[in-house]
Design a protein around this nucleic acid. Structure first.
Lengths: 199, 199
DNA sequence: TTCACTGACTGCAGTCTATGTACTGATTCA
DNA sequence: TGAATCAGTACATAGACTGCAGTCAGTGAA
């Protein structure tokens, strides 16, 4: 997987420096009042370099978000012999929910992301889009896992319903001012609601 | 509703001119190769004026999209005495689906929008965001209509599941190259899937 | 060890979106 | 008719993002 040694390590180090600088600045001054130039400056890097690591300014906060999708895909791939569709789906979603609030990197990146996603429109839009592409992957994997049970459209709809319900519930909880535990419960509740329709 | 007479009419005329110019240019040159300046120019208006009518460049294509939300809200408000939750929800969603492909303004705005939303990331993100705010309104209305049946989280989750399922199904169908009729069927199918969980 | 090569990073100039400000002139209202 | 209002304008500016032409450290093979 790793291409080279030192060179690659240096690259990851500047990437990490950019992320950390960005997070710190966002927390200090608020998302809208931080420019790419400032982030690059704080990371002691040229502004041009920022865009070498991230396509857009928003993407700094969505870094490492792909990890969770991989976990869900893995959960689908690992399904045991007699396991039902609903069980697999719930397990995959559970995987993503759990990871959202736990292992997600240094400090409170996940928490900050959640807070900002609920308040900054541009970021919100970008995050939703990420979810959509993740959905496509999940749907495809799910259909391949249950080829005789699901057609393409049903698989998409099912995953879409899950992700849609969970994120809507999470957002509502967040905007209500709930803490991490309550948000998590809301997500679980939403998941259970949709899971009924697969029985 | 109407504030003034002539002044307001003129305003709507330039707004319409901007929309039509934008649509035409987008179809000709492709979304990415059309600048705001060009649109304004084609509509014989100052570039500054464009942003007086639309917040962002993407919003030209999302113009009049709010109308459909109003229809769904209306559908919820108009529910008859003994009508069940699932019935009301299905009726509201049906309203939006139907309107998506029919009455949506001059020429093929809806079709173009669908095509571009499936291919242009920036537009996709913006559209998803619109859906999210629409969801919030719907959820709120729905909860008020069934206060003893739904708590805030469940209402959000339910609407989120519906919208999520329907849009995922639609997108999958679109990317598969389906025609309007098939896309519509996919949306209906997704809706039916989620409607089960409310029974 | 040497040397060609790759690739991360830089600086600069340029495009385009989006916004603040101050102004013009046409409606609208008193 | 005079005053207020408001769509549209010209001008200036910030800031995101891109293309291009480099530099230099790290790498891999002779």
């Amino acid at each position: 997987m790793e291409k080279h040694g030192l060179r690659e390590r240096k690259k990851q180090r500047t990437r990490q420096a950019l992320i950390e600088a960005a997070v710190r600045l966002f927390e200090d001054k608020g998302y809208d009042h931080v420019t790419v130039a400032e982030i690059a400056d704080a990371a002691e890097v040229s502004p041009r370099t920022f865009f070498l690591h991230f396509q857009t300014r928003e993407d700094v906060l969505l870094a490492n978000a792909d990890v969770r999708v991989d976990l869900a895909l893995q959960a689908i791939a690992e399904r045991r012999a007699g396991e039902q569709l609903s069980e697999v789906l719930v397990r995959a979603m559970d995987q993503m929910i759990a990871d959202t609030w736990d292992s997600d990197l240094p400090s409170g990146l996940a928490a900050l992301r959640a807070r900002l996603a609920a308040s900054v429109p541009a970021l919100q839009a970008r995050l939703l889009q990420r979810y959509l592409t993740a959905q496509a992957e999940l749907a495809q994997a799910l259909q391949r896992a249950f080829p005789d049970r699901l057609d393409t459209i049903t698989a998409s709809a099912l995953v879409g319903a899950m992700v849609g319900a969970i994120s809507a519930a999470a957002l509502t909880a967040l905007q209500r001012g709930d803490g991490p535990g309550e948000v998590r419960n809301a997500m679980r509740q939403a998941m259970a609601l949709v899971a009924q329709s697969v029985t």
